[in-house]
Design a binder for these strands. Structure first.
Lengths: 223, 223
DNA sequence: CAAATATAATAGTATTACTATTAATTAATA
DNA sequence: TATTAATTAATAGTAATACTATTATATTTG
């Protein structure tokens, strides 16, 4: 499965970039090093100028791929959710029982990525960390409605919808399938963050994972 | 109760400000108009220069109260959580039954503020909107551990802990009381946001409130 | 009333987030 | 192969941001 997925290109709304970074070596270097740098210094301190220095190129060259760093963040996080979606569809496709299917999906969505595929220019372990620390910033903006209309969040929304449908399959009388689905996806990122920075606000640790907690939460609500 | 609360000053870690904004007329104008402006233009576009113009004063005067706009956000959100905590303690103090107590607390935490007290310089309705849209940005930073150590998030943490304790009172065998408490507080903000901007990702609307959803979620887990 | 202290305004700097222009390289075609 | 076209890269610049240092003006206190 890993080998299969590495060749699948995640399709991202072409309005988030000016020039497709997958189409050139420089574009791939932009993606590769922006992941390393955002992880290292955080999104606020990350600039195209610094990235230019790192990849031995110029700031303005980066601007020909992305309008600004916000669009680059949208690109990276869309890629991440698309990648998670592939894993989810792949891993659950052959499972017939709705309960088993949902359980597996929760696992995939709430897991923390431990190993990257080491083949492409995208480091999934660091990208997972970036999503935990920065994803909210991509939509907590004044432009969210405009950008939503342009489809910048469609991969994420599709993932929430898939999960909602699975919840519905398990129990079609449950009244809040969409809210539960969005709670799992957003909440899992939050629990991972708390585990790192506010351990007193979570029960998640080395033994109890967000997976364990959300599996319990969901099946208590659906039974 | 409203009349009582308006005179209660929320105590905020004095490291978040340089000079206490409650100690002068200018300070109060800074708080009052920063709330109006952050709500209107969003935290990213808000600057001390614009605030200075608005309050008929100078940028550098604002800098004598707050080191930077991040600290101002910490001040505003701490004030909000302190205010919520007061309401919660006040409203639940006399309730003997743990279930009733928890139910009431969930209501207070997950409600959207509809009316402000109209007495002070702080508009609670707008502040609630600011917390929904901007709170995450106050801790999703590279400085979070340092600032946490300095106690900048202590009011918020105390609130989560209070809720955790109430959950424990209802069911002391439940394994994830801290995670559930943090899920409610953070998740309610998220559901409010989705209701406004991504209605397809939530079941919350005019009829179903985040209160309804979280009450159901919590008591399903605890029974 | 003078001295100390607090407050406000002015002016400036380094950095950021871009944009416009020009130069160099690569690709296409005649 | 030579010429032109198109793409890509680098240079230089600008407006705005996020501050800081200095000076001026009130206000308070002894």
């Amino acid at each position: 499965m890993k080998y299969l997925l590495q060749d699948l290109k995640v399709r991202i709304n072409d309005k988030v970039y000016i020039k497709d970074p997958e189409s050139s070596a420089l574009g791939k270097r932009i993606i590769e090093h922006s992941i390393l740098m955002i992880d290292e210094m955080g999104f606020e301190s990350f600039t195209f100028k610094k990235l230019g220095v790192k990849i031995g190129s110029n700031e303005s060259s980066v601007y020909r791929y992305f309008e600004n760093k916000h669009k680059l963040l949208l690109y990276l996080t869309s890629w991440y959710w698309g990648w998670i979606e592939y894993q989810l569809v792949f891993a659950t496709n052959s499972i017939p029982k709705p309960e088993q299917k949902l359980k597996k999906s929760i696992e995939i969505i709430t897991q923390s990525i431990k190993q990257d595929s080491s083949f492409s220019h995208i480091n999934e372990v660091l990208l997972n960390k970036i999503v935990i620390n920065e994803y909210s910033k991509s939509y907590l903006t004044k432009e969210v409605d405009k950008e939503n209309k342009e489809g910048y969040f469609s991969i994420y929304k599709r993932l929430v919808t898939r999960l909602k449908d699975m919840i519905h399959e398990v129990n079609d009388t449950y009244a809040y399938p969409s809210s539960l689905a969005s709670t799992i996806i957003e909440g899992a990122l939050h629990q991972h963050f708390l585990k790192e920075h506010f351990p007193s606000l979570t029960d998640c640790n080395n033994k109890i994972t967000p997976s364990t907690y959300y599996t319990d939460l969901v099946f208590n609500s659906l039974k």
